[in-house]
Amino acid sequence: MQICDKNYGVWERFNFARKNAKSKYVCIFDDDAIPGPRWLENCLTQMHKEEGLYGTAGIVLTEPKGYPYGGEFFRVGWDGNLDYTARVDFVGHSWFLKKDWIDDLFLNTEKYQAFKIVGEDITLSYKLKQKGINTFVPPHPKNDHQLWGSSRQYAMEFGTDSNGISMNPKNLEKMNSFMQEILKDGFVPIKQEDPKACAKMLRDIRKGQKLQLRLLLRFLLQGIFSIKNSNDKKCKIIRIFGIRFKIKRTKQSR
């Protein structure tokens, strides 16, 4: 454990893990990511199926030069649920990988490290991809939050804190500058490599979001308006905003 009295940037936590971890696998977390109790199990299960870098919030770039501004990417993970493992361009919030792979993050990446507070996530995926190691988000089933890499509640609460890196417009500009740099160096988004897979992921995420919205609307409507049968053969009960009304039955409805 190490407590620092100054901000060493987002790269240093990986360097700390590289120097101090003794295990075969490590998982590095953002300070606003509170994982489910089976998150590490989820990652390790998928790692045994296919070796790769696994993370909580996956980014799939649709218009890479515009990242991180809205509409230029979509997310896979706790806020983009899929019930299968999905290959993505890079991940954030947490990184589960073999400890030895962290060395690649610091191999000939001095110009990227100079960005200090951004870019470690993209660089890690970029360097590993050069070795044939892909980046994934393991399944995040809607109804099993134990497997999730981050609690939706806490991610929304802590991730939007004013101290968050992405809350500062200047940091977003720095992220965009970093993206231009790594694209120039040869980073290739998976949309360019496998457009069908990208389209399927986005389609499946949107399908799930629509289903969730329909269920929410149904729940809200049930709370506002409901009709129940009554033992009274002459009346039926209608409840609107919690107020009960007795409606006289017609001959057809008896």
Results as ranks from 00 to 15, higher is better:
residue 4 C to N: 09
residue 7 N to S: 05
residue 13 R to M: 06
residue 15 N to E: 09
residue 15 N to A: 10
residue 21 A to D: 14
residue 22 K to H: 15
residue 27 C to I: 13
residue 29 F to E: 03
residue 31 D to S: 10
residue 35 P to E: 06
residue 39 W to S: 02
residue 47 M to G: 03
residue 47 M to R: 10
residue 48 H to N: 15
residue 48 H to I: 05
residue 50 E to F: 08
residue 55 G to W: 01
residue 55 G to C: 07
residue 55 G to T: 03
residue 59 I to V: 12
residue 60 V to T: 02
residue 62 T to R: 10
residue 65 K to A: 15
residue 68 P to Y: 07
residue 69 Y to V: 13
residue 69 Y to P: 06
residue 73 F to K: 07
residue 74 F to V: 08
residue 74 F to W: 04
residue 77 G to E: 01
residue 78 W to G: 00
residue 79 D to W: 14
residue 80 G to D: 05
residue 80 G to P: 01
residue 82 L to Y: 03
residue 83 D to F: 11
residue 83 D to N: 15
residue 87 R to P: 04
residue 88 V to S: 04
residue 89 D to W: 11
residue 94 S to L: 12
residue 97 L to G: 07
residue 97 L to E: 03
residue 98 K to T: 02
residue 98 K to F: 09
residue 99 K to G: 06
residue 100 D to E: 15
residue 104 D to E: 14
residue 108 N to L: 14
residue 109 T to M: 08
residue 110 E to M: 10
residue 115 F to Q: 03
residue 119 G to A: 12
residue 120 E to I: 01
residue 121 D to N: 08
residue 123 T to S: 14
residue 132 G to A: 03
residue 133 I to H: 04
residue 141 P to N: 10
residue 143 N to R: 14
residue 146 Q to P: 00
residue 147 L to C: 13
residue 147 L to R: 12
residue 151 S to K: 00
residue 154 Y to H: 02
residue 155 A to D: 01
residue 156 M to I: 03
residue 157 E to Y: 09
residue 160 T to E: 04
residue 160 T to R: 09
residue 161 D to M: 06
residue 162 S to C: 04
residue 162 S to Y: 05
residue 164 G to P: 00
residue 171 N to P: 01
residue 171 N to R: 06
residue 177 S to K: 14
residue 181 E to Y: 06
residue 184 K to S: 14
residue 187 F to H: 08
residue 187 F to E: 05
residue 189 P to V: 10
residue 189 P to D: 13
residue 192 Q to E: 15
residue 200 K to Q: 12
residue 201 M to W: 05
residue 201 M to K: 03
residue 202 L to D: 06
residue 203 R to C: 14
residue 208 G to Q: 04
residue 208 G to P: 00
residue 210 K to M: 07
residue 212 Q to Y: 06
residue 213 L to F: 13
residue 218 R to L: 09
residue 228 K to Y: 09
residue 230 S to W: 01
residue 234 K to I: 12
residue 235 C to M: 13
residue 237 I to A: 06
residue 240 I to N: 05
residue 241 F to D: 07
residue 242 G to N: 04
residue 242 G to T: 11
residue 245 F to M: 08
residue 250 T to V: 05
residue 251 K to W: 14
residue 253 S to M: 14
